[in-house]
Amino acid sequence: MAWNEPGGNNNDPWKNKGGKDQGPPDLDEVFKNIMAKFGKFGGGKGGSAPSGKSFGGIGLSVILGIIVAVWVLSGFYTIREAERGVVLRFGEFSHFVEPGLRWKPTFIDSIVPVDVQTVRSMASSGSMLTEDENVVRVEMEVQYRILEPYKYSFAVTVPEESLSQAFDSAIRYVVGHSKMDAVLTSGREVARQNVRDELQTIIESYDMGLAIVDMNFKDARPPEEVKASFDDAIAAQEDEQRFINEADAYAREIEPRARGQVNRMAQEAQAYKERVTLEAQGEIARFEELLPQYKAAPEVTRSRIYIETLEEVYSNTSKILVDTKGTGNMMYLPLDKILERQSGSNVPANIRSTLEGLRNQDSDGVNDNSTVTSRSNSRTGRN
């Protein structure tokens, strides 16, 4: 049977708990009892009201102290060496902070750390139309660094996206004003520099606080359908440039050698000129010395000149002894060959002395006239 069923039964658990007729607990009394118990720990007596008020003041102070401590501790932060901190006070820019351990009032200041030393990179690629209406695929990469942290953070909504769009626009502008052959071959450096200048102009107008460090032209290639033909054309241009470089190297090698030969020939010609001039002057001086002697004794001077001339001529020829007597058989002895061989052969002393005497007589010109006469007589007899 239920405890609240009509019939006079009163089984209410709240009123009959412990055998006493009680109602539901009073919340005010519960809180009073709790505060009284805590008041004992705070120095109060019993459960009186003053003790509760004392505990409430101390608890509030403790809570406020904890809140202040948490607020102070939460304000410490660290800025790394490569970063600069942008301080916003109630959402408005206040100042910059340098690297190190810093403190800020929480809920008043907010910090935006920005890396200003790292060099970042961004790539861009795509198919583009050139000035001569050809399609080319270009890949480039830009390297940049942040100069002004506040402008980089708040000048534009998303700085990376703005830079990417500006980069794409600069590439398409430069490629659209260039020939396809220039972009694929020799004009890459010019295109790279033009893209850098155009991108620098765009980001300066945005005032993004960025600086372009470098620009890399990674690749440029034609569409796949005509890639083989363009590869052949590029290879031909490379061969042409290689041949030009080889010709320049050959010219640089030959030119100094030719100049050296020219200088050597000029010096030899000058030496020959001086030698001939000096020889002519010597001949003139010699004839001038002979002229007085010739005037004094013409026959003697003529004969002496004749003999000296024959001596000079025969000194460079072979000496031959011809026997013009006998039965008509011509016998000749090569005197120079015999003298060359006598050192290695057993020639008797008397024969050797005779050969030496003949050689000395012939070299001194003592018997030059007789020798010439005998030779002329022998030739006449043979004839």
Score class of each variant (00 low, 15 high):
250 Y>E: 13
284 I>Q: 14
95 H>I: 03
349 A>L: 12
154 F>S: 03
112 V>Y: 03
342 Q>D: 00
186 S>D: 13
285 A>R: 14
52 G>E: 05
239 D>W: 00
90 F>K: 15
231 D>L: 10
362 D>P: 03
148 E>N: 15
77 Y>D: 01
127 S>I: 02
5 E>I: 13
320 I>N: 04
132 D>M: 08
271 A>T: 09
336 D>F: 05
295 K>E: 15
118 T>W: 08
203 I>Y: 01
228 A>I: 05
109 D>I: 02
19 G>D: 04
241 Q>I: 08
150 Y>S: 06
142 V>G: 02
185 T>M: 01
172 R>H: 07
289 E>W: 03
244 I>W: 10
223 P>F: 00
98 E>F: 07
135 V>I: 09
79 I>W: 10
2 A>K: 09
128 M>I: 06
381 G>D: 07
252 R>K: 06
367 N>C: 09
49 A>D: 10
371 T>N: 13
282 G>E: 12
233 A>Q: 10
137 R>W: 10
356 E>R: 09
82 A>F: 14
272 Y>V: 10
141 E>C: 04
71 W>H: 07
345 S>D: 00
11 N>S: 11
132 D>G: 04
354 T>W: 02
29 E>I: 08
317 T>P: 01
269 A>L: 14
269 A>N: 13
291 L>I: 05
278 L>Q: 15
110 S>W: 00
304 R>K: 12
116 V>G: 04
99 P>M: 08
254 I>H: 05
175 V>L: 07
252 R>F: 01
330 M>D: 00
263 N>Y: 12
226 V>Q: 09
91 G>K: 09
219 D>N: 15
258 A>N: 10
324 T>H: 04
306 Y>A: 14
137 R>T: 10
22 Q>T: 12
303 S>M: 11
120 R>V: 02
309 T>Q: 14
254 I>Q: 11
153 S>P: 01
241 Q>V: 06
42 G>D: 09
204 E>G: 12
236 A>T: 03
199 L>W: 03
254 I>T: 04
116 V>F: 10
138 V>I: 13
142 V>I: 14
109 D>M: 05
168 D>H: 07
243 F>D: 03
197 D>Y: 13
16 N>I: 01
20 K>T: 06
190 V>S: 11
357 G>M: 13
172 R>D: 03
241 Q>P: 00
267 Q>V: 00
222 P>L: 02
193 Q>H: 05
254 I>E: 08
136 V>N: 02
357 G>S: 14
258 A>Q: 10
16 N>H: 11
33 N>W: 08
253 E>F: 04
170 A>G: 02
125 S>N: 08
291 L>D: 06
92 E>K: 15
379 R>V: 07
316 N>Q: 13
364 D>E: 12
36 A>H: 02
359 R>H: 12
143 Q>C: 08
237 Q>N: 06
154 F>Y: 14
53 K>Y: 09
72 V>Y: 15
1 M>G: 13
215 M>F: 07
244 I>T: 09
205 S>Q: 13
82 A>E: 15
119 V>H: 05
163 L>C: 03
212 I>M: 11
204 E>V: 08
11 N>G: 14
259 R>M: 08
133 E>M: 15
175 V>Y: 01
230 F>Q: 00
265 M>C: 09
165 Q>R: 14
240 E>V: 11
314 Y>F: 13
57 G>F: 01
